[in-house]
């Protein structure tokens, strides 16, 4: 096959599978977003009414967008930094024990969500949680973690970081594996310290991984759903926690679609989120490109 045709053949499986099983459902929902449909009766076409409602009437949309941004802005840098340091430390300082340590630090990512929910609820309990017991030991008064807006945001951020830094570590580890040892050896001969190698070799050469990791964590951050859901999933807990402080856009979409049977409106909400994410990614790519230019 010629060099010209080959790339099309190579991307074909992805796009065929995507067209067959990915795009159709999404376009279907796009159609639904212009209707009022409970999933049972006939869908009634309502034009842009759902979108108008999202932007002009739904205070929850703005509130959940703000919450999502707060959670995203704080948790993303922390988890990326932790993952990066974990990966480089493992490679540079823990040659003998790294296999075990890699596994241990990846465990949060595979710990069963049900268990995570129970464990965190217990740990952060107001009256008998270990976190408050520890604070009391230090002479600090107990915090109603799951009852105050900022405290519950802090818990959710902690959960997100805890769960994801191991995943970041894996990403960086496989990126590090592609950097030749010779480079580091050459730098060492030139008298470079660890920190010099880290900033001058590791970080620049991990650039493609950084772009990937930052982009996907921003996008995934916008789609945040599991952690706040897990923390406030018992029957008597309000959706999105105290003051709806950790209600995210996807939670709102999920509630509208699958609890209130407003599938048309839910789809419109999701497409509005999509627009925001698309704008954010575009901005991100612009930023990255500008940096590249410098």
């Amino acid at each position: 096959m010629s060099k010209k045709k080959a790339p099309y053949a190579m991307i074909a499986p992805y796009f065929i599978l995507y067209l067959a099983f990915g795009l159709f459902p999404i376009l279907f929902s796009l159609g639904v977003s212009f209707t009022s449909w409970d999933g049972i009766g006939e869908a009634a076409f309502v034009g842009l009414k759902n979108y108008k409602r999202v932007f002009t009437q739904d205070k929850f949309f703005y509130k959940s967008m703000l919450n999502t941004l707060i959670l995203l802005a704080i948790s993303t840098p922390i988890q990326i930094a932790l993952g990066l340091f974990m990966a480089t430390f493992l490679k540079d300082f823990f040659k003998k024990t790294r296999n075990g340590l890699q596994l241990i630090n990846f465990l949060p990512y595979i710990t069963t969500p049900v268990a995570v929910g129970i464990i965190f609820q217990l740990m952060f309990d107001w009256k008998s949680g270990v976190i408050n017991a520890f604070l009391n030991l230090l002479g600090i008064e107990s915090v109603y973690w799951l009852g105050n807006a900022w405290a519950s945001r802090a818990v959710v951020i902690f959960m997100i970081v805890w769960k994801n830094y191991g995943y970041m570590m894996i990403m960086f580890l496989s990126g590090l594996a592609a950097i030749s040892d010779e480079l580091y050896e050459a730098a060492k001969i030139d008298g470079a310290r660890w920190w010099d190698s880290f900033t001058k070799i590791t970080i620049p050469l991990l650039r493609p991984i950084f772009i990937f990791v930052i982009t996907t964590s921003v996008i995934n951050g916008f789609k945040l759903f599991d952690e706040p859901q897990l923390l406030f999933n018992s029957v008597s807990q309000p959706i999105g926690g105290p003051d709806r402080a950790v209600m995210t856009v996807v939670m709102r979409f999920y509630e509208a679609s699958f609890r209130s049977f407003e599938f048309g409106y839910g789809s419109a909400l999701a497409y509005c989120l999509f627009l925001v994410i698309a704008a954010a990614s575009l901005l991100l790519f612009k930023l990255i490109d500008r940096k590249k230019g410098e």
Partner: peptide, 17 residues
């Protein structure tokens, strides 16, 4: 019902806190 339940739970949180 579920919406009422939800805002009621939220109000209880506020009273509790």
């Amino acid at each position: 019902d579920q919406d009422i339940d939800d805002v009621y739970n939220l109000a209880l949180k506020t009273i509790n806190a």
